[in-house]
Design a protein around this nucleic acid. Structure first.
Length: 433
RNA sequence: GCGGUAGUGGUGAAGUGGUUAACACACUGGUUUGUGGAUCCAGCAUGCGAGGGUUCGAUCCCCUUCUACCGCCCCA
């Protein structure tokens, strides 16, 4: 028995034709739909200078501290495989001066591609995974936040997903968040000893993280913790208000979840997640996450430019589609199968399949000199609509047999007609049924 | 990074410290030697993730390792 010598790297997957069809379908819809919203595709490198990610994501974020897939190249440059899409897009935005006056604002871009995170694989979590994301730069309007959310929801609905939940929250602007952060620390400090070990650490580094702790010990305190909503500056309050009004105006259901926090440090004001209410995918229920950010473009050397965006996890999305049995029909059935009998018919069989394909039909043949029976079985497995049979006799007569696999009827066809008039032959054949 | 469960053919799987590793599906061939989806017959793991060890003997026991899955952390 053959044993494979190599295995694919941990946490990666081979996508086989059975899967790639679904992937292409999903990606195709994204391209089409995002285009309707005025988003154009940007493709950036799959790896960047390490600092592109470490600076944008925040030095304390887990993505940077332990999940970065980084390496030193032969020129001793510290590089990293992109863990998410936004940083690369922002880098490209600045480097290509897309903030220039010749471009409309907001500048809208989307991306589709692999992302890498060095972590322990599980269902719905891989070392190489894929995201479909969108970013819009250069407008602070809450209408843009809402458009981004609406576009993601539109995308999922177009794919046929059900049971979606949109959760939104605001992180406020920097002033709001600093005030809130302090309030949170003041509130939690007295209970320090009663918090979970993880949360004790979070309190120092990123107190907001305590809010979405799953530990019951923490949740007791989280329930009565101060809310960010009470610390918003008037501007942030306004923005937050307006986002909700606009979502409501679009009849888009949402839930406010004030305990929601995002993993990357650059977010402010609106943040959101789209998840499934299905029980089936517990660990990977969140299929999209995003929000508004500011300061990123400046950090990369560009002019002060706000941005909003989201990232969708393709593996999780497709997992959900499967769980919900959302199917899409893909016609892979063969139009023709060419059965050839005897060594002398190999050449003519080659000519016939090519001729059939030149009409745009899907055609297949046998390459293994198998018995007619075996070839018919292949035809059947490919759900061929017609079988063209050519043997010594037919070859001598310059003809072939054409069998309708549905009706089982078979007739003789002149080879000349087959080459020149195939579509007519099969439509006539169909009408005779 | 931590904790746990698992790993038998193309697939789903049964199984035991000891001569030929069930069964099913799939596949291949045959069943009037040129025709499909049915039936019947036959074939199909020198091997039980990999590497060591214990043993007269291991797929079954022990160790290591790899991978997958689950939980934590975190996230898409």
């Amino acid at each position: 028995m053959a044993k494979p010598i190599f295995q694919r790297p941990k946490g990666t997957a081979d996508l086989l034709p059975q899967q790639t069809e679904q992937w292409q379908h999903v990606e195709g819809i994204a391209r089409l739909l995002f285009g309707d919203y005025g988003f154009k595709e940007i493709r950036t490198p799959h790896f960047e200078n390490f600092d592109v990610f470490s600076r944008s994501a925040g030095d304390t974020s887990d993505v940077v501290t332990k999940e970065m897939y980084d390496f030193y190249d032969k020129g001793d440059r510290h590089m990293a495989l992109r863990p998410e899409g936004t940083a690369g897009i922002v880098r490209a935005y600045v480097e290509n001066k897309l903030y220039g006056p010749e471009f409309d604002k907001p500048y809208k871009a989307f991306y589709i591609g692999p992302m890498f995170r060095y972590e322990r694989p599980q269902a719905g979590r891989f070392r190489q995974f894929h995201q479909i994301g969108a970013e819009a730069f250069g407008a602070v309007s809450p209408a843009l936040d809402v458009e981004i959310i609406a576009m993601a929801v539109d995308f999922f609905k177009t794919l046929g997903l059900k049971n979606l939940k949109v959760a939104i929250n605001t992180l406020g602007d920097k002033t709001s968040r600093d005030a809130y952060r302090q309030a949170l620390i003041d509130y939690l400090k007295p209970h320090f000893d009663e918090l979970s070990h993880d949360s004790q650490e979070r309190l120092e580094k990123n107190p907001l993280r305590v809010l979405d702790s799953k530990d019951p010990k923490d949740q007791i305190f989280v329930a009565d913790a101060p809310s960010i909503l009470d610390y918003l500056t008037p501007e942030s309050q306004n923005h937050w208000q307006r986002v909700q009004e606009l979502l409501t105006a679009l009849d888009l259901d949402f839930e406010v979840d004030t305990s929601m926090v995002r993993g990357l440090d650059y977010y402010n004001d609106t943040i959101f997640e789209i998840m499934t209410a299905d029980e089936s995918l517990k660990g990977s229920a969140t299929i999209a996450g995003g929000g508004r950010y500011s300061g990123l473009v400046e950090q990369f050397g560009g002019p002060e430019t706000p941005g909003v965006g989201f990232g969708i996890g393709v593996e999780r999305l497709i997992g959900l589609l499967e769980a919900q049995h959302v199917t899409f029909k893909n016609d892979n059935d063969l139009d023709f199968y060419v059965v050839n009998i005897g060594d002398d018919t190999d050449t003519i069989a080659t000519q016939i399949v090519q001729a059939i394909r030149s009409y745009g039909y899907m055609a297949e043949r046998d390459y293994l000199a198998r018995s007619p029976k075996a070839q018919f079985k292949s035809a059947d497995r490919g759900h061929a609509k017609f079988v063209v049979t050519i043997g010594e006799q037919e070859l001598a007569n310059h003809s072939a047999k054409l069998k309708n696999m549905l009706t089982g009827q078979q007739l003789d066809v002149k080879l000349a007609d087959l080459y020149t008039d195939l579509p007519t032959i099969i439509t006539t054949e169909a009408e005779e049924e």
